[in-house]
Design a protein around this nucleic acid. Structure first.
Lengths: 239, 239
DNA sequence: CAGTGGTCTAGACCACTGG
DNA sequence: CAGTGGTCTAGACCACTGG
């Protein structure tokens, strides 16, 4: 337990002051440097830094060394489904960059998820998704190659689901996802342009068509400081 | 002495070593102290501490000052709905402690969510939810007082939804929730027995009955290091 | 009592960027 | 070039716990 009878730590007080100070400032403007904060508040830089760490993990600021620390944009509240569609709905401009798009043999986990024989052929598509130019998520999709022959030769820089519907008659109907909150490791944080170990939302998704076949097994990694999820659940009879 | 000119920071390497070391250890056993780690790895305590910070935010260890740092239990994967039901489904034993149970006038946000006139009477029930004795979440529920007259005099230490169904004929059918990841502030972290600013999952939920009336407006705060969520979505026609 | 994590100091060197 | 965040040192005092 954090000592209950002790006063509020300096870094918490400094974070509160800074949070208030930047609340009404425009996004992407500079906030005071750690050295300035340590001077202003009469603390060491390590303590000022902890205050900024706190605001960063809350999503209020982001760091761009060696330029400085900046006011963050507010969060996007996404529904589970098409990133493209959701970002458009919120009035922003979505982008996709293909990081990897290959055909290979399914590993045991993917094969089981997709109901394929061990070593069945799958497409693996890994894309960086952005909104208004800011990296927001890494989407890794695995699907049976037989479902959409030649998919990898198509343009994968816009909505994948839209393409699957239009060109391959694939109709996703239901998705089951596991959502958890984890610190991002090196690769993911580098790609998303955030500090290593920044909080991330990891969404593991199985998508099914009308016949209950699993047509996609995906792992999406979102910046937790910039996104939230909106979900809707049918409540079964409990008890 | 200073300077890792190596690409991987010392605290990341130490965290990796420790993660591996404790992987197979039983839950709730002691992990080396920060001073021991700093000796073992020849770094300052601040650096050893950053390594333990990382493992803590990953949910692998938890701290219980001044006793030490311990191996954590694995995560619970909950569906959105009844905490009681979900914890039982996973083979654990659920508990509820009532923190607050009052009747009051709805604030504007709650009134709007519940479709009540401004200042309409609501019940506010705040409970600490545990699994096998470990605090896992704080549930704050607001519902129209007219929906379940006398509810506050009942036993609120087991499933609230079960009680509402059985005794008041209230039938939740659908829930819409917003899920985000935030550092926990002081009150919540104290109640959950974790460090201030530990990652939390905040779930804001509107629950509706068969007639589409909002019967509950809730804010649940979960320990992000111990929980994950399982959600299921119907996919609309996109594009 | 010895040992723990929580906080903090007053420095330091690094790679990197923009003007 | 000056300034930034990223990392790190080698100490320190505190409240608190268990044996």
């Amino acid at each position: 337990m954090p000592q209950s009878s002790s006063p509020t730590p300096a870094y918490v007080r400094i974070a509160a002051a800074l949070r208030e100070e930047i609340r009404l400032r425009p996004a992407n403007t500079l906030v005071p440097s750690e050295r300035e904060l340590s001077d202003q508040h009469g603390v060491s830089r390590m303590t000022a830094r902890k205050a900024v760490d706190l605001l960063e993990s809350e999503g209020f600021v982001y760091r761009r060394p060696p330029r400085g620390t900046f006011v963050a944009e507010p969060r996007l509240t996404l529904r589970i489904g098409s990133f493209t569609e959701e970002v458009v709905r919120l009035g922003h401009s979505p982008q996709a960059t293909v990081l990897r798009a290959v055909q290979e043999q399914a590993d045991p986990t993917a094969a089981e998820a997709l109901g394929l024989p061990d070593g069945g052929e799958v497409y693996v598509i890994e894309r960086l998704r952005s909104a208004d130019g800011d990296a927001m998520a890494i989407e890794s999709t695995i699907m049976p190659a037989g479902l959409a022959p030649g998919l990898l030769t198509r343009d994968l820089t816009s909505s994948l689901w839209s393409l699957l519907r239009r060109e391959f008659g694939v109709r996703p109907e239901r998705a089951v996802a596991r959502i958890e909150c984890l610190p991002l490791e090196e690769t993911a944080s580098t790609r998303l342009g955030v500090r290593q170990a920044s909080p991330g939302i990891v969404l593991t998704r199985h998508t099914y068509d009308g016949d209950g076949r699993c047509i996609e097994f995906a792992t999406d990694i979102y910046r937790a400081d910039r996104t939230a999820f909106l979900v809707s659940e049918q409540i079964g009879t409990i008890d």
